[in-house]
Amino acid sequence: MAVSWLNQWFRPSSKAPSDGEISLKDMGAGHKAKILRLSGDDATAHRLREMGFRESALIEKNTDNGAIICKVAQARVAISKKLAQNIFVKDMGRVKNSMSEDLVLLSDMSVGQQGVIKDFTADNDDYERIVEMGVTPGEHVEIIRYAPLGDPIEIRVRGYLLSLRKAEAERIKVSVIN
């Protein structure tokens, strides 16, 4: 993973984007965009079109950590940064209620607060355990209580009660409802 990241960092971009054009990779998360053109070889472009990245399609870039998650035709699709470099779009600005707005860490929420899980911080490999317990993006969470000594936290998710340490909750980004 580190190697591909380095490659991307050092490789000069093959074609400079023209005015108003920006690669999906470089566009900020939480922005809406219209696809202008696809670059790269035919196979790549074909594959992107299959995934829904067609010219003039409207997409939303949700997250940008490690991989890029986009909303394409109502589906959430993950693509690598490398692929995203081949997609040139017109940035249509920030989406309202976008994923990257007003996100707080689950560990910073107070008792009784509710929210929708949006994202995980990318620096850890080990969070599938949490996701498997049903803490998935899009799910509703509620902070039920903190343990008497302040840690761990008890939350309600998918209709049951779950406790996790603050260290784990710090990896979960939530958009607060109340």
């Binding site: 591909s4 950590n65 991989a67 890029i68 993950a78 693509i79 990318a122 996701v131 998935t136």
Partner: peptide, 17 residues
């Protein structure tokens, strides 16, 4: 899958849920 980042890890979990 690695190039696709963390989301490949949890795609099946999310799809199941």
């Amino acid at each position: 899958f690695i190039a696709k980042g963390l989301r490949a890890k949890t795609a099946a979990i999310e799809a199941r849920y």
